[in-house]
Nucleic acid binder design. Structure first.
Lengths: 357, 357
DNA sequence: CTGAAAGCGCTAACAA
DNA sequence: TTGTTAGCGCTTTCAG
């Protein structure tokens, strides 16, 4: 019978310290410190010898000691409201990779219940002493108060929107999807997103759209924006939203863009239930497009959150390292993966008539 | 236009140190240290005064300094191979909650490509200096080598199986699902799991089953075990597996238990495609049963991974605190959530005849 | 290029 | 109950 068990005991033999290495190499600790960190002012032969010895001894600097000496922990906190949803998970993965590649570690802070007043899971004061910076995943993850508190504090931080919350990259992604649909001939679209308000730049001035749609006539395009609660329960919520949309009077959109593959699944399931065929009767675009999107054969804008979180980390670290020139994340170009869920709309008159449930 | 940006600058004014508090309270640092940590040997009035002052000053102990002094970091590493799959995300959430409740922080280690030879993402030596213990999520997350290396090391650690990998709790969960189906009258079942080998105790001795199924005749029950690669691509893989199962000769199972809701989705999609109605033609049980399972109206064994990871953390911390009595995680009782995806099988002869594709 | 020495902020004996 | 005193292991001037 296989049982999980705790293995290993502390206080085996203590890890070698920098002094052990220094002694073994016949140099001072200062030199070892420079050598192992790759700093200049160490002769090449000395450096090599030290590195060899350090390796042989299995030496690694104590994070605590280094942290105490430098005042920096070389770790950043990542705040998330949910990990049960691939977009967030992917963002965390992206952040982790980016951080580790720079020698930072990621300490995770999970905020169970996102709400308008969501607070940091732990006190900012204690956080200061544990991480060098904060990456907040999801514009809705922290409430207004906490965000403002963060702004006022000395803690370097960055909020990256996810899940269709208004944010530049998110806009970019939505626009990519919309352009694809418009090019297919759709003129009546719906956008399911997770933002608290409207997606800026799309609704306020429909004209903003036509730049990006290669000058198609934006005025002839109808775009409905529907906010989905999320990310927890996004599947169910978008399903409900879709029902409501279909239950209403008037013509129905011929295509729906979802800010996550989960939302798309909600639409997918409900569409199937209503007997709608995708993409014949309805085109559907997802966001992310990994496992779930792939299995659903969803046309999707890919690599959203992982990339964006990684970009966020980049800027954050750049700022930490004192490079104040880059405070904005590197630009991100959304990539459209065309699969089976989008097609040209049926000709007018060919649209089936939907009976109310 | 909303752009994510790095806010906040370091070196505002330094956080108050323990000395500041001691000075303000007119006591020694040792007393402050005891007071803020809730240790005994501090008079009540003194303690209260210190706490008030500490709070007023916004004091929090430096993790680095405390770590250096005690030799313990009060943080544990959590190794995962994927966060894009809810079961893992949930496990991490569970671990985070458990850790934070004990004042520990969770440093995340993401291992991109799970494989037989998967190695720890960072060197064990450096890890020693950053975390007090390691929680490995998923029995397949680390390769044999790394596991053995871990065993030999002084690092306290624990591996908790997920995603249907052979493991006691996983077995418990599968058995719960199977019992439910057997009680409904199913006698020909399939189990989709993620383990590398067979689920122990189920295959080796089918008799093991009847204990748990309230003494139903285990010999009359057929159980096919099918291993699904996972967790990445679990949806697609289980879909494929289901196809293969259905394409084969002979009778088909009347019920399938999946080790994750994603696997169940794969089956769900393919079943729909084949025109099978759930639960009429096929009963389906998922594992986890949260958002995805709920939307699919899946009967499922719930709260699997979060709870189990939390339990794992408990034991790990108990071991760290020197309590060697508890080295096994607290027992976990799987809870079955019965929804719409399971029902009694059709009578023999009523089963439709499946045409090979 | 290398070393000596002074901390970083806290904890843990041990004394008082 | 409280204070004194050594460190914990590293980094970092500043001399050499």
């Amino acid at each position: 019978m296989i049982l999980p068990a705790v293995r290993g005991t502390r206080a085996h033999r203590p890890q070698p310290s920098i002094e052990d290495v220094a002694a073994a190499a016949g140099v001072s600790t200062a030199t070892v410190s420079r050598a192992v960190r790759g700093l200049p002012r160490v002769a090449q032969p000395t450096r090599t010898r030290i590195l060899e010895i350090a390796h042989a001894l299995g030496y690694a600097a104590s994070a605590s000691a280094a942290g105490l000496a430098t005042g920096r922990t070389r770790s950043v906190g990542v705040v998330t409201s949910s990990l049960r949803h691939p977009a967030y998970g992917a963002a965390v993965e992206g952040a982790e990779r980016a951080l580790r590649s720079q020698g930072y570690s990621l300490v995770l802070l999970h905020l169970p219940h996102p709400s308008a007043s969501a607070r940091l899971p732990i006190d900012l004061n204690v956080l200061c002493r544990r991480v060098d910076a904060l990456l907040v995943l999801g514009a809705g993850t922290l409430g207004k108060d906490s965000i403002e508190q963060l702004q006022r504090s000395a803690m370097p931080h960055m909020v990256v929107g996810l899940h269709g919350e208004p944010d530049n990259d998110e806009l970019e992604a939505a626009t990519t999807a919309i352009r694809h649909l418009v090019q297919l001939g759709h003129t009546d679209l719906a956008l399911f997103h997770g933002g608290r308000g409207a997606m800026p730049r799309i609704r306020p001035q429909a004209g903003g759209l036509d730049h990006r749609t290669n000058s198609l006539d934006a005025n002839s395009i109808k775009l409905r924006e529907i906010r989905i609660e999320g990310p927890a329960g996004a599947i169910a919520h978008s399903r409900t939203a879709f029902c409501r949309l279909w239950a209403g009077p008037g013509p129905k959109p011929t295509a729906i863009v979802c800010a996550s593959d989960e939302m798309a699944l909600g639409v997918f399931l409900e569409a199937a239930r209503k007997g709608l065929t995708i993409p014949k009767n309805l085109s559907l675009v997802g966001m992310d497009g990994q496992d779930l999107g792939e299995s659903l054969e969803l046309t999707a804008v890919i690599h959203c959150s992982a990339r964006r979180a990684a970009n966020g980390v980049q800027s954050l670290l750049a700022a930490l390292e004192g490079d104040h020139s880059i405070t904005h994340p590197a630009p991100w170009s959304p990539e459209l993966m065309i699969r089976q869920s989008t097609a040209a709309p049926l000709e007018t008159g060919q649209q089936p008539v939907w009976l109310p449930q």
